[in-house]
Design a protein around this nucleic acid. Structure first.
Length: 934
RNA sequence: GCGGGGGUUGCCGAGUCAGGAAAAGGCGCAAGGCUUAAGACCUUGUCCCGUAGGGGUCCGAGGGUUCAAAUCCCUCCCCCCGCACCA
């Protein structure tokens, strides 16, 4: 095939760039500002980017053709640690990295090994990314490109953080992270050998205590169910060595493992002495909540490596505790430590009730499951089952005092807070699963990072503003609005500073770098500035707080700003006008992975910093891309780069495939076979247009009208689909459905395909812009990319023409069906008897057989042939539920198309009532003639 | 566990909101045509039965509402994604 996609594509890309047609400036036209999250450059752009960006570009092109002044910019994100990590791996010649980056990212090995600094990586991949995006034909305004380490960008970020700090949204605090003591670093999922699924859970510590020689020793019981403190009957220790440790001035008794973990908490911890649990069994401790004295007892099920290693026993609600107590009664321990009397006095204390159930819950479930020993693995299940039931349905009883009546599901946080405030509670962080092991082989711990900077997303006022604005936004697909609602409510304060990585320092605390998601929240406004930065008109030293306050917020007086920033007032006003014109963001289109993080922060920060008229209007979310059913992975492969997809298949094929293969948030699968098939479709399309693009000649036939009518429907469907961001539906309609009509048109002998070609090309232009541009220029000198999108025209819809074609299709299909069973040379067709038309006209509006019958039988001529008439009515009502009479000139359609029908069916056709036997004519109805094959 | 989404013909997927002949479109497969030939193109077929355009089955499972259910209601089973400080 002579068609070379790439040749055509590069030709038009060059022309678009030369003419600068995607470089919008403020104008009289309504504006549309669409943005896509800039890519993170620790590798080449891949099929996932291709999907998100192509959807955005198709929409940008669509809106442009719809008459909007469209701004579609792009930047590069390099802030954070992964690029630094990559540089280190390349320095080390890490085998996997070298393999993945040469094999999947298509970086030549000799080039790759030289990328041993973050700067070189950024330089290399930004060039690659730029080329890739140009090669696929995105209609981006490249004058606004930037990188997040640009000095000017950093000024912008500093400004943002000052603003947030002023508003009290940047605060200090501490938070738990997964941490490797050996590497002395927080660890991410991909740094782990085991335990990727482990999350950090916060045990509530309740400070039980005993006193000896005037010294108070705290028994820090760790629990996930603090409310059960009201039902504690005793404390469990494992009969082994413990330690007395000084924690913030208090003496805590904890396991050795717990001591190790406490070292990484935000507490001051100091070892004092060892102590064997032996010494304590049979002695009493005080429950700080109830003031009651309870005994300390031995239990083997206690896990020294879980939280503090000190456990409070709630036999009424904890199956473990219940069984352990039972077992203890007849054990050696009871004798050894003289516990009989104590044990006899212990009675489970019920503090939670589910509806009107009776008895002791733990006892019931243990008996039901037949559990006898504290080492029985079934205890785990019993615990879970009971916990789940009580969590969802349980209510606290009178014994819990002020907490009576509260649902178990709503008590944990409140109680934890109350205990801490009263000085008798604390928090102990622990992994939900163990072990958690770093790639270096070291067991990870939970480290509490102190004096960390936070963005206070949990601020209720802030949250409520975001929630409220969300209701005014368009979210695509719409069910993501609920998702956003939930995520906004769930969002907690976020640590926004790091010790390591690329990025901007916190301006008032230069020890810290601003974390990479926190510096990417309102950068869409920076695109306005970037144009001036790139033109050399705006430099870092000009970007003072006053300037940004003025151009982004309209604050201050321009003369003052001019003085401070060193810029001419004229330029300052121009930047301000640009901002006012382009903002807010009308559409942010993104992959679904960013919903629970970036897109939330995007909303929060816009709402915090800008006045309401500049808050985002809409968010669209799309799914992932897999390769032949396999998940892509940047760091492990497989991966398909944008560059490779384009060079192997062409930009238009790549674009259309990715737009067509799935919709909304459902995932797309890149399949070579399907891509190649699509490539053939486009070649066919190209040939088709080349062969049929000409002047419209002769009279417009019914068939032509049919084509135009069908096309109108496609225009409507495609437009509706695009307006709701459904590219799959749009491509399906604009290309495939139309193609199938066009094939029928040509098969029917249509000669004037050109009637629709101009508009058809326009319709397809957002999806396959290069091919459309090429074909358009066969007869035009303008850029199709700047033409107007076809408008649906109701007056061109021709129902009669469409019904006639349907009639013909159905007739041919019926004849073929019959010929399957009867070998014949000639087929006679007879229209339905005249009286049937008459009857049909009479009962047009009747749906009910009875009424229809009544109405018809009022006429004498029909009464005479009562049986035939009633059979017909039943038949026709069954066939056509709407009972309409189709307005087709059947005789004419058949006679005009005798040759065509013959060609399609392979037999002679004759419209001849006489030749068709009466029995066959009997079943005919208007619109469905009798057929007789001979 | 919590939250969000989903289960339709060999596969991918429309149809579900607004109940009314299930299966648009793509892929794959098959047959015929075109061609020196083809992985190219055109046409047809692709749940089952049928020597007359017809009949039957069918939408994860099971109930219910209705003249009528893939669609509405209830119960259950299964799958995917997120639960963070990481881009």
């Amino acid at each position: 095939m002579q068609l070379d996609f790439r040749e055509i594509e590069t030709k038009w890309q060059k022309k678009w760039e030369e003419e600068g047609i995607f470089q919008p400036e403020p104008s009289e036209k309504p504006k549309f500002f669409i943005t896509i999250p800039y890519p993170y450059l620790n590798g080449n752009l891949h099929a996932g980017h291709t999907r998100t960006f192509t959807i955005g570009d198709a929409f940008a092109r669509f809106m442009r053709m719809k008459g909007y002044n469209v701004l579609f910019p792009m930047g590069f994100h390099v802030t954070g640690t992964p690029i630094i990590g990559l540089a280190e791996l390349i320095q080390k010649r890490d085998e996997n990295t070298i393999r993945v980056y040469s094999q999947y990212h298509d970086v030549p090995e000799d080039v790759l090994v030289k990328l041993d600094t973050p700067e070189k990586i950024v330089e290399y991949f930004s060039k690659e990314a730029l080329q890739a995006m140009k090669s696929i034909g995105y209609s981006i305004d490249w004058r606004r490109i930037f990188t997040t380490t640009d000095e000017t960008y950093q000024k912008f970020i500093e400004w943002q953080f000052y603003r947030l700090k002023e508003m009290g949204y940047v605060v200090k605090g501490s938070h738990p992270v997964r941490y490797c003591p050996n590497d002395r670093n927080p660890v991410e999922d991909h740094d782990l050998l085991h335990g990727e699924n482990a999350t950090v859970v916060d045990f509530t510590v309740i400070k039980f205590y005993y006193e000896k020689d005037g010294e108070r020793i705290i028994l820090p019981c760790a629990t996930l169910r603090p409310e059960t403190v009201f039902g504690v009957t005793n404390i469990w220790l494992k009969p082994e060595e413990y330690m007395i440790v000084n924690v913030n001035g208090e003496r805590w008794l904890v396991s050795e493992e717990a001591y190790e973990k406490l070292k990484y908490s935000d507490k001051n911890v100091e070892f004092e002495r060892e102590i064997n649990a032996d010494e304590l069994f049979g002695r009493f401790a005080v429950n700080p909540v109830t003031g009651k004295e309870i005994p300390i007892l031995p239990a083997d099920f206690v896990d020294l490596d879980n939280a503090t290693g000190v456990v409070m026993s709630v036999p009424a609600h904890a199956p473990y505790d219940y069984v352990a107590l039972q077992e203890l009664k007849d054990s050696d321990y009871a004798k050894k430590y003289n516990l009989d009397e104590i044990l006899n006095k212990i009675k489970p204390i019920v503090l939670i009730r589910i509806e009107d159930e009776e008895g002791i819950p733990a006892e019931k479930i243990v008996k039901e499951m037949g559990i006898k020993s504290q080492t029985d693995p079934a205890l785990e299940k019993a615990t879970k089952t009971l916990y789940k039931r009580e969590f969802h349905r349980g209510v606290l009883l009178e014994i819990t005092g002020e907490y009576e009546g509260i649902k178990v599901s709503q008590i944990k946080e409140k109680l934890q807070k109350d205990l801490i405030e009263r000085g008798i509670g604390d928090i102990f962080y622990e992994f939900s699963e163990k072990p958690v092991v770093c790639r270096c082989g070291t067991k990870c711990v939970v480290k509490v990072v102190k004096d960390q900077w936070f963005l206070s997303y949990s601020d209720l006022e802030w949250k409520n503003k975001v929630l409220k604005h969300l209701e005014n936004m368009k979210i695509i697909p719409d069910y993501y609005k609920e998702e956003f609602r939930n995520k906004i409510e769930w969002l907690k304060d976020k640590a926004c500073a790091r010790r390591k990585g690329l990025g901007t320092r916190i301006p008032w605390d230069s020890e810290w770098l601003i974390e990479s998601l926190s510096d990417s929240t309102i950068y869409m406004s920076y695109y306005i500035l970037a144009k001036y930065v790139n033109a050399g008109e705006l430099k870092a030293e000009n970007m003072t707080k006053e300037l940004l306050d003025y151009v982004l917020l309209g604050r201050g007086r321009v003369e003052e700003v001019s003085k401070v920033s060193g810029l001419q007032t004229e330029l300052i006003e121009r930047i301000r006008r640009d901002f006012v014109y382009w903002y807010p963001v009308d559409m942010r289109s993104s992959g679904k992975d960013l919903v629970a993080n970036h897109l939330l922060f995007f909303l929060f920060h816009h709402i915090a910093i800008f006045p309401e008229e500049y808050w985002p209007k809409a968010i669209a979310v799309n799914g992932y891309v897999s390769l032949e059913g396999k998940k892509m992975s940047k760091s492990k492969g497989p991966l398909l780069t944008m560059k490779r997809a384009v060079s192997e298949n062409g930009a238009d094929v790549t674009r259309m495939y990715i737009l067509y293969t799935s919709e909304y948030d459902s995932d797309a699968d890149w399949r070579r076979r399907d891509v190649e098939s699509l490539s053939n479709h486009l070649r066919r399309f190209y040939e088709l247009i080349i062969q049929n693009y000409g002047d419209v000649e002769g009279e417009i036939t019914t068939l032509d009208k049919w084509l135009i009518s069908r096309f109108q429907r496609v225009v409507k469907e495609t437009t509706t689909a695009m307006e709701s961001f459904q590219t799959r539906r749009a491509v399906n309609s604009a290309f495939f459905e139309m193609m199938s009509d066009v094939r029928w048109y040509l098969r029917r002998g249509g000669k004037n395909l050109s009637i629709i070609i101009d508009d058809w090309l326009k319709l397809l232009s957002p999806f396959i812009p290069h091919l459309c541009e090429e074909l358009w220029h066969l007869r035009h000198d303008t850029f199709i990319s700047l033409e107007s999108y076809p408008e649906y025209r109701d007056d061109l819809v021709d129902d009669k023409a469409e019904i006639a074609e349907e009639y013909l299709k159905k007739l041919i299909s019926d004849i073929k069906e019959i010929l399957k069973f009867v070998k014949a040379k000639k087929v006679y067709i007879a229209l339905a008897e005249e009286w049937k038309y008459e009857v049909l006209r009479l009962i047009k509006d009747e749906k009910d057989v009875k009424n229809a019958m009544k109405k018809v039988m009022e006429r004498e001529e029909f009464r005479k042939m009562g049986k035939d008439v009633s059979a017909f009515i039943k038949n026709v009502l069954k066939e056509r539920s709407d009972g309409t009479v189709e307005e087709v000139d059947e005789k004419r359609v058949i006679n005009d198309n005798l040759e065509f029908i013959k060609r399609e069916t392979g037999v002679e056709i004759e419209l001849n009532n006489e030749k068709v036997p009466k029995t066959k004519r009997k079943v005919s109805i208007p619109g469905k003639p009798a057929i007789y094959a001979e």
